[in-house]
Computed example of a mutant assay.
Amino acid sequence: MAGNFYQVKCPDCENEQVVFGKASTEVVCAVCGHVLVRPGGGKATIEGEVLETVEQRS
């Protein structure tokens, strides 16, 4: 499966979490519950600040 993993900072509590760029379900912050990623029919919509690409897969 091709896709990237990103380290994202939560806009509410500033927790940093690794998420998949093609997530098929909502991903919430493990600390405060804010939605970080929403599925978008392929590439997901990331709602936090992307700090870095952790791993690229092709």
Score class of each variant (00 low, 15 high):
1 M>L: 09
1 M>D: 10
2 A>E: 15
2 A>P: 15
3 G>I: 04
3 G>M: 07
3 G>W: 05
3 G>R: 08
3 G>T: 06
4 N>H: 08
5 F>E: 07
6 Y>W: 05
6 Y>H: 12
7 Q>L: 15
7 Q>G: 01
7 Q>V: 11
8 V>G: 06
8 V>F: 08
8 V>H: 06
9 K>D: 01
10 C>M: 08
11 P>Q: 08
12 D>L: 10
12 D>M: 06
12 D>P: 00
12 D>Q: 12
13 C>Y: 06
13 C>W: 06
13 C>H: 08
14 E>T: 08
15 N>E: 14
15 N>Y: 09
17 Q>C: 02
17 Q>I: 01
18 V>P: 01
18 V>A: 08
19 V>L: 05
19 V>Y: 02
19 V>E: 02
20 F>Y: 15
20 F>H: 10
20 F>L: 05
20 F>W: 12
20 F>R: 03
21 G>W: 02
21 G>M: 04
21 G>Q: 05
22 K>P: 00
22 K>N: 11
23 A>W: 01
24 S>D: 10
24 S>Y: 03
24 S>M: 10
24 S>Q: 12
26 E>M: 09
27 V>K: 08
27 V>F: 03
27 V>Y: 02
28 V>R: 15
28 V>M: 10
28 V>F: 09
29 C>P: 03
29 C>I: 04
29 C>L: 08
29 C>A: 09
30 A>T: 09
30 A>S: 13
31 V>K: 15
31 V>R: 14
32 C>V: 03
32 C>Y: 00
32 C>D: 11
33 G>C: 10
33 G>A: 09
34 H>P: 00
34 H>N: 13
34 H>I: 12
35 V>N: 05
35 V>H: 03
35 V>P: 02
35 V>G: 04
35 V>C: 09
36 L>W: 10
38 R>F: 00
39 P>H: 09
39 P>E: 04
40 G>Q: 11
40 G>A: 14
40 G>S: 13
40 G>N: 15
42 G>M: 06
42 G>Y: 03
43 K>G: 14
43 K>E: 13
43 K>V: 12
44 A>S: 15
45 T>N: 12
45 T>F: 09
45 T>R: 14
46 I>C: 04
47 E>N: 08
47 E>Y: 01
47 E>L: 15
47 E>G: 01
48 G>K: 03
49 E>C: 01
49 E>P: 00
50 V>F: 03
50 V>Y: 02
50 V>C: 05
50 V>A: 04
51 L>D: 00
51 L>E: 05
51 L>W: 01
51 L>C: 02
52 E>I: 00
52 E>R: 15
52 E>D: 06
53 T>F: 00
54 V>Q: 05
54 V>M: 06
55 E>D: 12
55 E>F: 11
56 Q>N: 12
56 Q>A: 14
57 R>K: 14
57 R>S: 11
57 R>V: 12
58 S>H: 14
